[in-house]
Amino acid sequence: MKSVPVVLLSLCLVMSCDPDGGNPTPDAGTRQDAGTNQDSGIPDSGIPDSGTTEDAGIPDSGTTEDAGIPDSGTAPDAGTTEDAGTPPPDAGTTPDAGTTPDAGTIPNTPCGVPYLGDPNGALDFKIKALGPDWTSYPLTTGSTLTVIEPIQGGRVSFVGVYDVINIDPCGVSILGALKNPETGRLTLDSRTANLQRGPDGRGSNIDLDDASFSNVTLCPNQWSNKDIYDQEYDLIVILKDRLEKKVLQKTIKVRPACNVPGEDAYCRCICKAGYVLGSPCP
């Protein structure tokens, strides 16, 4: 696959190829065209989504996120440059952005955020999660995954995406799942969200909008036969565009952790294997 100077391509898209003139500010008060949304309320026919079967026919360079390529450890949000100073990723992990589209082929988007990249290019993204201080950090194989108490109770991990390229950012479906690799049992959350676009033309969830992250339900632990914390799990992320024409799934090994200061004891109690609902916890 030919390597593409992604930074240059991104600049092209921002400066001249974006019909909205690169203005990411949403039009206050406009209502999204209901007819272009992913799900207008018509019941799902029940046909499995093409490409959502794990790693089957999905245009993905592999299922391991950033294997062997450590990032700088910065917590990305819209506007920051990811991995400044790290060597460029090899051809196997950089999606081919395809031919440079002319202005007429970049589709309009209904949510005020311009298209991310090239509609003919392969979808790609990286994975991140909110940390103990509710700011996001990149996730790679072996990362710690923070277990957080959300405002409604219980414990979740907020799993999101960044460096998203070649997708309509409006009404994407983001699914996060934590899977016990020994038993195959998993817990998941899927939701529709709008990605935000950074100056580099790539998309991401914004930390302040935790509702746009997948809120992966973890505890009370009544689903896994081992502790949630300090054990190895598979984290699966599936990103789909609203028309379900672009789908990408990635899987990395993670170790969830009860690492929010002051909450670790209670977290370890309700996230322990064999927890019985309502048992006393410190």
């Binding site: 949304n37 009404g171 699914l175 899927s190 935790d210 809120n215």
Partner: peptide, 21 residues
């Protein structure tokens, strides 16, 4: 229960899925 439900003008027809073992 689904956490963090949001139904907004710029994402007006969201879908939320969850599981419970």
């Amino acid at each position: 229960t689904k956490q963090s439900i949001r139904v907004c003008t710029k994402n007006p027809t969201p879908v939320f899925d969850g599981t419970c073992n």
